[in-house]
Amino acid sequence: MSHPILEFLDIRPEDENFYRVLLRTGGASPQQLARHCDMDEEAVCVLQKRAIGLGLATVTDGLLRPITPAKAVQNLIDHRIALTREELESAAAAHGVVAALLAERDTAAPADPFADSDRPMMKHLEGLAEVRAAIDELAFYTRSESLTTWPGGRIPVDSITTARPLDERILRRGIRMRSLFGAAALDDAETMAYLRELVRKGAEVRISRVPLERILIYDRAAALTPIDPADSIRGALLTREPGLVAALVSLFERMWGQAQELPVLVGEDGPESAGERPSEIERRILESLTTADKDETGARDIGISVRTYRKYVAALMQRLDASNRFHAALLARERGWI
């Protein structure tokens, strides 16, 4: 047995040894691996699922094959970074770090618009810089859902650069993201490439052929609308007024219901559109519902936190209109998702 060298990435010795066996064999069936590792097939299946979840192996032509060492190590590093980032973000949120720093910055202000108390229900944000700062902070505090519309459809390249880290952070935390775009997005290659990137990472995207209103809604508790719809650079109105936010959510839902899923690229197979098919991590979570007896087990096998795992499960159950987790797995199989 080789000495473990991946312990610094929190990889168990048995998982590393299993990956080494795959590297030596080049690929094998569960039965062959059971004989080679001197294990029963059930134990091999557990190791196989963990290897796939960790990005160490993939199934091709019925055989479990190793991911190349360079890519495998990069996958392990990405897992570790994602987990560490989530732990740090959760800790920062739990300790109110941003609110505390904002209080320092705004000591001269009569009220902090993002603190947990004494927040104004309505606030005018002047200029693009102030709006972007508000979006940064609202996205940081979002815990369950982000709803956004882009009436113009096309996203400028510099806006994509600004939006990407915010969108990735939201999706990485298991937050449901739904985004509506005007039909002009279909004619812009950069925008469409970014939308497909978001879908691959778990976002839901639709295209509307009817006019849209510009709205950003976070956790159905706060919303941003432009002061001047014809000139968004002028600034925005931030509202936390429950009645107004609820009305904006209803408007978003009506626009969402009238929109269409993102078109399938030429060469994509399957009856589902890109916006309907599950992302890779969603597919793995659906598969785990048929094998893992506990959330902790499923989360560990996939390499995400239990909290993120449960958020994905809840969103998938809602998306599938499933009454329980077993029902969700059955419906996913019927759709050909797993």
Rank of each mutant, 00 (worst) to 15 (best):
L63H: 14
L265F: 05
D61N: 13
E334H: 10
D188S: 09
M192P: 01
G298C: 00
C37K: 05
A111W: 10
I285L: 13
T191L: 00
D118L: 03
I170C: 07
N17D: 13
P242I: 13
A134E: 04
A329D: 01
M39W: 09
D78K: 01
A51L: 10
L33C: 02
E268T: 09
L316P: 00
A184Y: 03
A329G: 06
R85I: 05
D293A: 11
A109D: 07
R164Q: 04
G257W: 00
L238C: 00
V266C: 11
D228A: 10
R12G: 04
L248V: 07
A134P: 06
I281Q: 08
A34E: 04
S90P: 04
W256Q: 01
I217P: 01
L76G: 02
I5Y: 10
R12Q: 15
A100I: 04
E241V: 02
I304E: 01
E145H: 14
T162C: 11
L9T: 08
S323V: 12
S179C: 07
I233G: 09
E16C: 00
L289F: 05
E287W: 12
S146G: 10
A247S: 08
E261T: 13
D15M: 08
D219A: 04
G62H: 09
Q32E: 10
I281C: 05
L289G: 04
P229L: 14
E261Y: 12
P278F: 06
R105G: 12
L237W: 08
I233R: 12
H36V: 11
E213S: 09
K123Q: 09
N324F: 03
P229G: 12
R85T: 14
G27H: 02
E87Y: 15
A315V: 13
A230T: 08
D40V: 02
R214A: 15
L47T: 00
P278G: 05
D301S: 15
A129P: 01
P165K: 08
L212R: 07
D187H: 12
R173I: 00
Y141W: 05
R319K: 08
V264E: 10
F114G: 00
S288T: 14
H79L: 14
I11C: 03
L237Y: 06
L198V: 07
D219I: 01
Q74W: 02
E104A: 04
D158R: 08
P69F: 04
G53K: 02
A236N: 05
P165Q: 10
R143H: 14
A259P: 06
S146P: 03
T297Q: 09
R206C: 03
S323I: 14
G96A: 03
L265K: 11
I52A: 07
A70M: 15
I215T: 03
I67H: 00
V157H: 10
I227Y: 13
E7R: 14
S146C: 15
V313G: 14
L6A: 02
A93H: 08
I285V: 13
A246Q: 10
E137S: 09
T60W: 15
R35T: 12
L147Q: 06
R65W: 07
S208R: 10
A91G: 11
A236M: 05
M121G: 04
G62N: 12
G336L: 02
A292K: 06
E89P: 06
A329C: 04
V21A: 13
T142Y: 03
E241S: 04
R254Y: 10
R154M: 13
G257T: 01
T225K: 08
I207F: 06
